[in-house]
Structures are given as structure tokens and as C-alpha cells.
Amino acid sequence: MTTSDGLHLPAGTAASGPYVLDVGPTPGPTPGPGPGRPGWAHTALRVVRLEPGATHTFDTGDTEWIMLPLHGACTVQIDDTMFRIQGRESVFAQVSDFAYAPRDARVQIASGAGGRFALAGAKCERRLPARYGPAPEVPVEERGSGSCARRVRNFAAADTFDCDRLIAVEVITPGGNWSSYPPHKHDEHLPGEESELEEIYYFEIEDGGLGYQRVFPSREGGADVLAEVRTGDVVLVPDGWHGPSIAQPGHAMYYLNVMAGPGATREWRIRFHPDHAGGYQ
């Protein structure tokens, strides 16, 4: 088991204040480490657990956010606009609806029955309108085949939901299958070929199972991770080839991907590793 320092965050190790998970850049004019992650500059992910009847309020600052239920329903008030989010029983049950909050706004999340809610964010420049994302409008893609088949929920992919910088998708990998395969990368700006994007992987594994995540260097000194992951774990991908993500037989794997980068255009362009490019995609 190998890990670059600070890139595999087991459940509970990145808790902060009201959040059971809090990953993101340090505020300020010069991007700082976030909690122990040097150079992390663009993406953020928080998970808040609300008891029945509880609320959570925060200011978006210079970051756009999507509020995505992992478990439970809620209301989301963004300044003077209220959205009712039906949510879901679990990430394995179904696609969820969600709410988008722009930068420079105040947000309150309230849940009568309680639940867990992911806040996926990216530092941004434009202030877009607050919006509701209905579950039936989320494009669902069946990607790969055989032992590399998985289901991708493109709720905030670059070409499906308008954000300034944020790109976010969910992936369900059946037990025993590989996903994020072939290994691929997006750590250089090559017009028309590759985007420069940081990425966060947040994992949940069905019925107490486990999975594995591989990240390996695309350049000297780059990210190098082989992590056993369980529910609540995070793997950060600042650079490098990433994949496969491997699900334990009998235990489906869920991961939430959050991406953003410095490029002028919001796009997801990847390059496959040349030694694996003939594999299932």
C-alpha cells in the first residue's frame, strides 16, 4: 500500500467544525494547503450530517457550490430563493435532485428527518443564478462493458449543467468491476486534447465493503497512491494517471468526482495511458 502524503484521507481524518469531511483551498490571495494539502487551489468538497430538524448555514464566498443529498431530503434556501430537494435513501438507490448556489450568496440547508449532504464546490469568477437540478433531467450513461461496466450520473458534467468552473459526476461500479479505466489523466493544458483539472474522489461502499484506488505519476515526483478505500474516504488527484477504481466482489462502489482547474474554458478532456488505451472505457 503506497500513498503520497495527504492524498488518501480515511473517513474522519478531514473533519472540521460542522463537517464530517472538509477538503478545499485555504482562503486568501495565495492558494494555500487546505487542511494539509499543499497547492490545492480550485476544488472543494464538504459533507455535513444533519440531525432531524437541524439546519446548516454558510456563505459561499468566492466558490460556487452544488448541494447534493447522499441520504435524506432537505430544503435549500439560497439568499431569498427556496428549493425543496427530494433526495434519496442512499447513493446506491437512485439519482438525486440537487441545488446550485452561486458565489457571494448565503445558503441554509434544513432537513426535517435528517440526512447527509455533500457540498461540491469550485472557486470561480462569474456569479450565475441559483438553480434547481431535477433528478429526471440528469443524464445517466452506461460506460464500459463486461467487468469494466459502470454507470455514470452526469448531474454537473461540463456539457449537461451550467457552472462557471465546477464539474461533478457520480459513478456506480458493480461489485467485482473496475472503473476509471483505462488509466487517464488531465493535468496539462493541451488545447483540444487535455484539460488541466484537480479532482476529488469521495467513496461509499455498499454493505460495509471496500475498494481500491490507484493513482500513479505522469511526471517525476507526481502523485502516487494505492489506497484501500471505504465509505467516507477521499482520494485527491492533483495530477497523474488515475485508475483503476476497483470494487470488492459483492459490494458496489460509489464515488463522487469533483473537478475544476485554471483553464479559461470549462471542459473535461482526458488522455488515456498509452499502455492501456486499448482497454475497456
Rank of each mutant, 00 (worst) to 15 (best):
A101L: 08
T2G: 11
I85W: 04
Q248Y: 01
S147H: 10
T75L: 02
R143Y: 00
F117L: 02
E170H: 10
R46K: 15
R126I: 00
R151Q: 13
R151V: 12
D97Y: 05
L256F: 12
V76I: 10
S245V: 15
R116Y: 12
M82W: 00
F92T: 02
P244E: 07
V152A: 13
F92D: 02
V225T: 12
M1N: 11
T231A: 07
T63V: 14
P35I: 14
W65H: 12
A15Y: 01
E206Q: 14
Q213L: 08
P136D: 11
A277F: 13
G24Y: 03
W65D: 03
E196G: 09
V225E: 04
V169Q: 09
G146I: 00
D162H: 10
G61A: 07
A157L: 00
P249L: 01
I66F: 03
E137A: 12
V20K: 13
A93C: 00
L68D: 09
H56M: 11
W178C: 12
G250L: 01
P52Q: 02
P274R: 14
T173V: 12
A122K: 04
T57C: 05
T30F: 14
S195D: 09
H242K: 10
I200K: 05
D22H: 15
A260R: 07
S195P: 05
I205M: 08
G87R: 05
H42E: 10
G34H: 07
T265P: 00
G144D: 00
R214V: 13
P174H: 06
R269Q: 15
V169D: 11
Y202M: 08
S180W: 05
T75K: 09
A122C: 04
L70V: 01
G87T: 06
T173Q: 02
R230L: 02
L190S: 01
L190W: 00
D104W: 12
I246Y: 12
V20T: 15
Q77N: 09
V234E: 04
N177M: 04
G146P: 01
S90F: 01
F216S: 12
S90I: 06
T26C: 03
E199F: 10
F155Y: 14
G6V: 05
E206Y: 06
P174D: 07
T60S: 09
G221N: 11
C148F: 10
K123P: 01
D162T: 13
L119F: 09
G261N: 06
A277W: 11
R46L: 00
A11Y: 03
Y212W: 15
G144H: 00
